[in-house]
Amino acid sequence: MQKPSSSSFENMEVMNGDFDDDGRIRRTGTLMTTSAHVMAVVIGSGVLSLAWCLAQLGWIIGVPLLGAFAVITWYTCILLTDCYRSPDPVTGTRNYNYMQAVKVNLGGFKYKLCGISQYSTQIGTSIGYAITSAISMAAVKRSNCFHMYGHNNGCHTLNNTYVLIFGAIEIVLSQIPNFHELSLVSVVATIMSFAYAGIGVALSVAKIAGGTSSKTSLMGIAVGPNMTRMEKMWNAFSAIGDIAFAYSFSFVLLEIQDTLKQSPPENKVMKRSCTIGIGASSLLYMICAILGYLAFGNDSPGNYLTGFGFYEPFWLVNIGNICVVIHLLGAFQAIIQPFFAVVENWSRKKWPGCKFIEREYIIGKYSINLFRLTWRTI
């Protein structure tokens, strides 16, 4: 069964009065859904590497740096929420994404540079999510192998198959038409992120309570026989980069804000969402980083679930890695959907009236668009 194009639907919605001030279908996002989006994007499996970051930087630099990046991220996001509408942050014209906000406020060449930077970051991050998910899937198999054959067994596993599995699942999830319909995915992803972080915290506490924790230090791993000055400097900068990346999500903030209902004002609700999302994420980061560092000390692995800081109980480690995969499946969509939207909107403007691009087909409760199906799969 054929369905009218999206533009036809919007016209019908306008006629029925079920539309926002920009003529688009009425948005239904709330404080809860946008907070979930924020946490789904901010909290990644990188939380499990923060103990390693503290091992490189030590207590004096590492912990304050975690707090500093949280404050910087929160403050810049609060400023960015007022850029959703221009020139007035409450009644102005909507800027649907980060690029539009840059174009309105800075314009010209800076707008193009922003687009290159933003979408390169989104594509790169999504590729990173695919690789990380594959590593976590492989870690489940390795964990079972270690449990059966001992910790000294190599249990080497290739990740290629798991990358393909992740990609196949994302092909299906990528058929979700737009960011506005990702609420459930983001809620599930957020729950999973707290689940695997909680498992990491529980295992760290158990290790500390068991009296097997390792030595920590004020300045991190010291230069010595096992660490050259160059390695120390490189690892320190890598740790700072990991912490900064752990908080990055501003490149999709306006897309998240664009899902909010018109009333109360979007910028006010989004500021609360940023405060909740970044606050909860920062608290979780602090707990995971500090307890992980106390548990492993300067021997902290890059990821204490996939790096096998813990071997037992193997089933709990497996659950943690499965939660990582489920979370990244959802976070991948939250990151890549804005890029999908840009390409599809550009295509509609480039070839207006093209049935292949605009026509929707109804199959049961689902809407299929051939262009969306084809290009998102590729």
Results as ranks from 00 to 15, higher is better:
Cys323Arg: 00
Asp299Glu: 09
Lys3Asn: 07
Asn318Val: 13
Leu113Gln: 03
Ser213Ala: 13
Phe251Gly: 08
Val104Leu: 08
Lys350Thr: 12
Leu260Ile: 09
Ile357Ala: 09
Ile290Ala: 01
Thr28Ala: 09
Phe146Tyr: 15
Met12Trp: 14
Val185Pro: 00
Lys350Gly: 04
Gly200Leu: 00
Gly198Leu: 02
Thr73Pro: 08
Ser126Glu: 15
Ala202Pro: 05
Thr161His: 08
Leu65Ser: 00
Glu170Met: 13
Ser5Leu: 09
Ser204His: 06
Trp375Leu: 08
Ile287Asp: 00
Met233Gln: 09
Trp74Val: 07
Asn95Tyr: 04
Thr33Ala: 01
Glu312Gln: 10
Lys112Trp: 14
Asn95Ile: 08
Lys350Phe: 09
Leu48Tyr: 01
Thr81Glu: 00
Val342Thr: 14
Phe251Trp: 15
Trp375Gly: 05
Leu373Gly: 09
Lys215His: 13
Gln118Lys: 01
Ile319Arg: 02
Ser49Gly: 15
Ser214Asn: 13
Ser45Asn: 04
Glu255Thr: 15
Tyr98Asn: 07
Ile362Val: 15
Asn95Val: 10
Ala40Asn: 11
Val41Gly: 02
Ala197Asp: 02
Leu54Lys: 04
Trp375Thr: 10
Thr161Ile: 07
Pro264Lys: 10
Ala138Ile: 04
Gln2Trp: 11
Phe340Asp: 06
Asp258Leu: 03
His37Met: 12
Thr28Met: 08
Pro225Gln: 06
Ala295Ile: 10
Lys232Glu: 03
Phe166Lys: 03
Thr76Asn: 15
Ala222Cys: 05
Ile199Asn: 02
